[in-house]
Design a protein around this nucleic acid. Structure first.
Lengths: 153, 153
DNA sequence: TGAAGGATGTAATAACATAACAATTCTACA
DNA sequence: TGTAGAATTGTTATGTTATTACATCCTTCA
């Protein structure tokens, strides 16, 4: 199996994101419509977390401009398929780095200096849940400075 | 060191929350003004996470009703002192169970059936941060069903 | 006392998100 | 192929959450 280097140009990373989305949709019998694909493209191309209304602005070129429900529906769809994540504390969205399965929770490291987000798998086993608590979904977001920004100071 | 039992009656828990706030403010040279105390009371007395505009409604009795900035400023103050937490994915607030220090992050278990929130200390040591990442603050929220609600099914 | 800083009041608006219903497009299958 | 049903998208309106900007008041302390 040929392995690509971890760091690739944006266009390759972006193309792979779309290709992955195609596969996921095919597997699950869902439709990656032009609108959904477009929204995913915008999220994937954006440099860091992007807000719903920024996407809305980008979709508002020409007549027939997109309205909020259009964008939120596409975002909901992409989240349902695990193709993007919502960054709760930033009210923003990022493309999923898909280093994990659909249903697992991602663990996000968000650099407050450069805005970059690093996504890791969240270990399924919760170290210390309250007795009997059954976790169905977790939000795990770490804020701080990434290695590069720490060194730049 | 004397340890209080975890479970206490609501009224005691509430009184203790206020007393704790008094101590924290005294320690840090901050003022627990009547407004701030009132907001903390409302958050502490509420059964589960409470929204800013619900607090606003509760503060809107009589003329001179509170406006949004009033509530948000009080909430910001209380968060800065670690007396309350914002539950990001619910856009809501809860009183801190103060089982941890000011600066540490809480780990929340939120029951989607009964609304109860259980707060645990978050272990400081992050198991798997990206190389060089310095975490300053973490948002950790687990959603699911608490032991009681799992059994009730 | 009176200047400085902190806290609160007030009006307006920005930013984020959804409800409800209409129109269109796709898919399955008779 | 035609058409019913489901899924998707369009559209209007509104609901919800949060902040900006500036005025006023209160407290401290030189």
């Amino acid at each position: 199996m040929i392995m690509f280097p971890i760091v690739m140009s944006d266009s390759h990373a972006y193309a792979e994101t779309i290709a992955h989305a195609e596969r996921v949709c095919a597997d699950r019998g869902e439709r990656l419509t032009p609108l959904r694909r477009h929204v995913l493209e915008l999220v994937a191309r954006s440099d860091g977390p992007v807000k719903a209304y920024d996407l809305l602005d980008q979709l508002k070129t020409g007549p027939g401009a997109a309205k909020p429900p259009t964008v939120y529906r596409a975002l909901d769809f992409l989240m349902r398929l695990g193709l993007i994540h919502r960054v709760e504390a930033l009210k923003s969205f990022i493309a999923c780095a898909h280093g994990h399965g659909h249903e697992e929770s991602a663990e996000l490291y968000i650099c407050e200096s450069c805005g970059r987000v690093d996504e890791q798998d969240h270990p399924d086993a919760d170290p210390s849940p309250p007795s009997g608590f059954a976790v169905s979904r977790s939000v795990i977001e770490h804020y701080g400075q990434c290695g590069d920004c720490v060194n730049d100071r």
